[in-house]
Computed example of a mutant assay.
Amino acid sequence: MNSTPEFIIEPCKKEHIKKIVDGINSYNLSKVPPLSDIWTPLEFVIKNTNGEEIGGLLSGIGYWNGLEIKILWVAENYRNQGIGSKLLQHVENIAKEKGAEIAMLDTFDFQAEGFYLKNGYTVIGEIENFPKGHKRIYLSKKLT
């Protein structure tokens, strides 16, 4: 008598994603009630006077009013001119108006650790040697 259930693991298709997301959200919200009903995207692009996209920020506010910064990018020839800081401050201000109390993100040592430190973020964790010879850095900032 075989009491071990059999399982099949297969590649996830687009139609499976909603069930997975809904499943984890349902579990999480059964443990900690939401402060917000949905993910609120805060996504912006910045353009030069010619209308060319020279940077952008992809982020959003989640169930518990945390600003999650996913990507901040500025074109190389526009870096070190305050553009990234303007984008970051713009998003943080909107997030605060919407009730966010904390911002969080991750970066790599070859990306923007110094930039985020300069903008008031604090390192809260690191993964050494990822990718090999580098580190992944997790940062946060109180927005209140």
Rank of each mutant, 00 (worst) to 15 (best):
Y78C: 05
E128H: 09
I94Y: 02
G99H: 01
N80K: 14
R79Q: 11
I9Y: 08
H16M: 08
I61E: 04
A75H: 12
G99M: 00
P11S: 15
I46S: 09
K96S: 13
E52H: 13
F110H: 08
S30T: 11
G99Y: 00
W64G: 02
M104H: 14
F115Y: 05
N50C: 11
N2P: 03
K86T: 12
N48V: 02
F7Y: 15
P131N: 12
I127D: 06
G62N: 15
G114K: 08
S59E: 02
K13R: 15
I127E: 14
G56F: 14
I71P: 00
I69R: 02
N25E: 06
D109P: 04
G125D: 07
D106V: 01
K19F: 05
R136D: 02
N129K: 10
S85L: 01
E97V: 07
L143W: 04
E43Y: 10
S36D: 13
K98G: 09
F130W: 11
E126N: 11
S26Y: 08
K142G: 11
G120V: 07
L105A: 05
E128L: 09
W39V: 03
K70M: 08
Y27W: 08
P33M: 09
P5K: 12
L58A: 12
T49P: 01
L139C: 09
G82Y: 06
A100P: 02
E6L: 09
A95T: 06
E10P: 00
L29M: 08
W64L: 03
K86M: 07
G51V: 09
P131F: 10
L139N: 09
N129H: 08
A100G: 05
E126A: 06
L42S: 03
G66A: 12
V45K: 14
K13M: 04
L42R: 08
L88Y: 07
K142W: 06
K98D: 14
I94D: 03
N48P: 06
I20P: 02
H134I: 00
N93I: 04
T40A: 03
E126P: 01
G99D: 04
S36K: 11
L88T: 13
H16C: 05
E76V: 02
E43T: 15
S30Q: 08
M1T: 13
I61G: 03
E68Q: 11
Y116S: 04
L87W: 01
K141D: 10
I102D: 06
I46V: 15
H90K: 15
E15F: 07
N48Q: 11
G99S: 00
N28V: 00
Y138R: 11
G82D: 01
A95C: 05
P11R: 13
E10D: 07
L72W: 03
S85H: 07
E92V: 02
E52K: 15
G23R: 14
H134N: 13
D106G: 07
I102M: 12
K141F: 00
K47Y: 04
M104Q: 13
I71K: 03
I17F: 00
K19S: 14
F130E: 11
